[in-house]
Amino acid sequence: MNAELEFHPPVDNPGSPLPENDSHVSQGRFEQVLRAGHFAVTSEIAPPDSADADQVYQRAQLFDGACDAINATDGSGANCHMSSVAVCALLSHVGYSPILQISCRDKNRIAIQGDVLGAAAMGVCNVLALTGDDVSAGDHPEAKPVFDLDSISLLSTIRIMRDESRFLSGRKLDKAPKVFAGSTINPFVPPIENRVRQLQKKINAGAEFIQTQYCFDMPALKSMMQQAVDLGLTERAFILAGVGTLASANTARWLRTNVPGVHIPDHIIERLEGAKNQKAEGQKICVELMQECKQIEGISGVHVMAYRQEKYVAEIVKESGVLDGRKPWAPGY
């Protein structure tokens, strides 16, 4: 290639990839933090119902100095919002370390592989593979569900593209997408004996990090983690426990009945109910859960889900002390 035409991103651009490292699969900061053995914190951004990039930046700013990576949800709950690829591209551009969520509900394997390449080209270093909620859960129930792949087929696809530098069809890629691949697990749904096997299957398929569904039931989480440690899974993937703030006992009850897969034990709801300030109590519970998760063998971080309570995340993370005084990168730090 003509040297003059070659594209060199400016060295001081925070969005520039980290130098290549043979022991890392990506050039991203999130993988770097985990591989260095730090306890990581991630959170998630709700993509706006808007064509305004500033809204994305305003929402991301709430996590400054508290999170190592930000998940950009992909039509979560089957509701339409700005695309996760676009949110991740915007965030990467200013240096954030976003996690691109890809749901199999809306795109087939042709579209998904294109997105993985495009996102990687725009500097996105982390991808989270999800099957996704059914269209009937969201605001466009009349839409055609795709589900050409499932999360495990998607993980295999990402691994093939990255490690074999080819499409599923076999066609070669000129440059493979160097992304850190992850998926999710819900430790609390039946059949419980299957949970650790499902985790293992995802890791076999290529998951290098796992973010769990909301964890409020610590004994159940510990039991799955113990099995995961025994099977050597925590040596092969980083597991981040999902924690959340509950605004009130009513919210907790609503979540439990209406959101598939959310398991909140009665004692948590009773504790919220008995509190004078339920919102503050919800945050206190979250802080305690984070501290407890940090003590569990095999857990490498927490994923804080605070839908519509994003502004409290930084405070909660600080309060919990799980970062041990470490300050995650943020623009201007």
Partner: peptide, 21 residues
């Protein structure tokens, strides 16, 4: 499976073991 998952179950199984969809 309503999501035609080949490597299930998904994370939405109900407490009684029924399908989320």
């Amino acid at each position: 499976c309503p999501k035609t998952i080949r490597n299930g179950p998904c994370g939405g199984v109900r407490e009684n073991g029924n399908c989320e969809v």
